[in-house]
């Protein structure tokens, strides 16, 4: 068996179309899921931090607990919802990249919500009097606090990205690992492992790690830059 590193390198060097397609789909699915989770989770987390309503504590605890939601369970929930026999079957979304995006969004959302709430709550304690003095309502304070917490929030978004890009249970169930259509890096790794092609599986794993590493390095660099620039 060749060294997995050599296999990984020659795979990339060859520019194999199927591999590129798989990498492209993985990134598209995960990045879209991160985007959707942020679009929903950032306002929701800020609202949880700033709003007072009965049952707020329970909602916070629920989101914290959902951070530990097993990917397979998230996948099953989305599967049952999207199946032709489920409530949203008419959308014909099962075994599509959209279904995978939904499942991953479900996985990332609790991380984004919980972290946002914690960051915004801390900032609010510091900013509260000043913002009120400047004339900001709670509603208007939310985007201000989100923007001022952007460096800390980036960490949470990265954690979400990591969870989504690494998971296989959910996308396998709702995507079906269809060649050329819903096969991602992680489901391809699972498939190659089941075929006993362990070298190829590890090579794919190395490529996935390299991608994750590059993205994290870029985000970390951006965070450092922002810290130095913005204090």
């Amino acid at each position: 068996m060749d060294s997995p590193f050599a296999t990984a390198f020659s795979l990339i060097a060859s520019g194999d179309a199927a591999l590129m397609q798989i990498i492209g789909l993985s990134l598209r699915v995960t990045l879209t899921a991160v985007l959707v989770a942020c679009a929903v989770g950032l306002p929701l987390g800020a609202a949880l931090a700033l709003a007072a309503f009965p049952g707020r504590g329970a909602v916070i605890v629920a989101f914290n607990a959902l951070m530990g939601l097993p990917p397979v369970v998230a996948g099953l929930v989305v599967y049952l919802l999207l199946s032709r026999s489920g409530p949203f079957g008419s959308l014909a979304l099962l075994f599509t990249p959209t279904a995978m995006i939904l499942a991953q969004t479900l996985l990332i959302l609790p991380i984004v919500v919980s972290l946002t709430r914690s960051v915004v709550e801390d900032l609010w304690a510091e900013y509260r009097e000043q913002l009120r003095s400047l004339g900001a309502s709670r509603l208007r304070a939310a985007p201000t606090l989100l923007w001022d917490g952007r460096v800390s929030l980036l960490t949470g978004v990265l954690a979400g990205f990591g969870r989504a890009s690494a998971e296989v249970g959910a996308v396998l169930i709702v995507g079906g690992n269809i060649a050329g259509h819903t096969r991602t890096m992680t489901t391809a790794i699972t498939l190659e492992t089941s075929r006993g092609e362990l070298g190829l599986a590890v090579a794919l794993g190395i490529i996935l790690m390299a991608l994750t590493l590059a993205l994290n390095a870029a985000a970390w660099g951006a965070g450092q830059w922002a810290r130095e620039r913005l204090g």
Partner: peptide, 17 residues
């Protein structure tokens, strides 16, 4: 249900290959 359906279809369009 209808709101969720239309939101999901929007997402489907966005993510369509």
């Amino acid at each position: 249900r209808r709101v969720i359906l239309s939101a999901a279809s929007g997402l489907a369009l966005l993510a369509a290959p």
